[in-house]
Amino acid sequence: MNVFRLLGDISHLLAIIILLLKIWKTRSCAGISGRSQVLFAVVYTARYLDLFTSYISAYNSIMKLVFLAASYGTIYLMFIKFKASYDHNHDTFRIEFLILPCVLLSLLINHEFSPLEILWTFSIYLESVAILPQLFMVSKTGEAESITSHYLFALGSYRALYILNWIYRYYAESHYDVIAIVAGIVQTVLYCDFFYLYITKGIYGQ
């Protein structure tokens, strides 16, 4: 554990909490892509199946459980509790165009052709593009509430901080994972346009 990794995890946790609080406090999920949230739930489910097979640390297990619970909690709020506020009409990104290539790629490029390893690889690939329906929705409506912008900024920062963590680990521990690094860079690059607007305009869309 190094400072970049810790800040990355905190940023990730913060993003999830911001989103849950926004929906809970406003009793509305307007402006949030349910499709991105479903993709994130698939990502965490596929990746954290190792909760049953390997133990790393209490921190690791607890964070995994928190991410899973928060993700399914968000889906419950969006699709059941505050369903009426869900903005169907603007959430139209075809997620099969993300899922199918990720399935194929994870079958072709992985560290080991075993079920858990392929699911882990699939989750890494899918996570890198899971935000696209949300970014598409923001660009389609041409605006995002400031709280949604803070959510996106925290969520984008998380993988950017992980890149610093991977650079640190490469030099300090000679540890690296090509799949995670390449997908993490792709994921961060997708946020660049948003980062630019967030920093220069303060609030995206205004």
Binding site: N60, M63, N110, H111, N165, H175, I179
Partner: peptide, 10 residues
């Protein structure tokens, strides 16, 4: 791609 990840990250 020979290096198997340790999966200690989230």
């Amino acid at each position: 791609l020979n290096m198997k990840s340790e999966k200690d990250e989230l």
